[in-house]
Design a protein around this nucleic acid. Sequence first.
DNA 1: AATCGCGTCAACCGCGCGGAG
DNA 2: CCTCCGCGCGGTTGACGCGAT
Length: 369
Amino acid sequence: MGKSPCCDKDGLKKGPWTAEEDKKLVEYIQKHGHGKWRTLPKNAGLRRCGKSCRLRWTNYLRPDIKRGRFTFEEEETIIQLHGVLGNKWSAIAAQLPGRTDNEIKNYWNTHIKKRLLKMGIDPVTHAPRLDLLDLSSILTSSLQAHYCSQFINIPNSLNTNGYAVNPDLLDLANTLFSSSFKSPEEPQNVQEITPEVLDQFQYSLLANQLHNPPNNSHFLSENRFMHSNNAREIPLSNPSDFVSCHQNHIPSYWQADGDIQHQHMNIAETSVPVPNHGFDGSCRFDLDHLSSGHHAFQSNDATKVQSFGLGSSSLSSPMSSSLTWNSSSSTSTAYLGGCNKEDRDGHSNHFLSPLYDAAPNSFYVNGIM
DNA sequence: AATCGCGTCAACCGCGCGGAG
DNA sequence: CCTCCGCGCGGTTGACGCGAT
């Protein structure tokens, strides 16, 4: 069946909108509401087709449009939803208040898709593909992974807790690492850890979690999305295994003042000795409120509580959050581990979120850890 | 300073769906 | 049913900005 054009093309303007056109459109919609896009331009005194007006309104002029960079939470939500919905941009946009399908589509194509490809993740199927893998990225990530493994036993903790990690990726990373790096205390080759490296490492974990969830139905349950579409849930048989930091050492970038996006960190400088005054027990590492708040570490000694959080949520890039270590007493030892309603030494934990209560034997991870 | 290449994103285009007649 | 119309969706384009050379 033939389809008539949405409007008479003759004499209608195309291309970028002027401020005057915007004003006319906004004023008309404020007065009469939107809809009837075919007749709207004529009534509003615009020499545009209805389609163009609708697009301009929905993608740009609508008052509830959210501007600025995508947050980490938004980005993670997009990846999660894309894994379920595919290129249903409007459906994805419906889960992200203030974001348009067009904006999400653009962001996917220009940022996320490329990053996934670089990591060897098929952006269509979300499946790991070694043929797509950028080996240099993996090498970089493996260096970071090994460095982090001084603090976090990633492969062991994930595997021993029934959390499937793409074994090819891990093997490759471990192989590459073991042949290239011996000890962060005696670095053979100094590896710069840039925010991009952190991104890659984080995405490697994220991708593994996405594609090897221990229980799909649980992972993708409506409940999960409702309660936290920006948190990752990892069931742990022994939560304190998951993350453990060496006492007396904490990565220096956690203590960086200001915006670490513009700082390059050096492995030779990533550990710092700290005075011994706390954090010798389990604690909850919860980034659910990364965008605004600070996060408390509960030590066994209830009087010794430290916090950290995002320095400024407004300027951080989605993946390279600017973590600051807010402490009035210089630095401290952090011992990160899972926790139950009581920590392993029986001390109650004062900063459990509702998420924790919803699944008391789970540990939520959302962020570079 | 000029040119080139690339990334970004607003805007366009064609198609398909669903409701109305 | 069939056709038409309005609208929304997803893919693509092209203008623009910026960094590299």
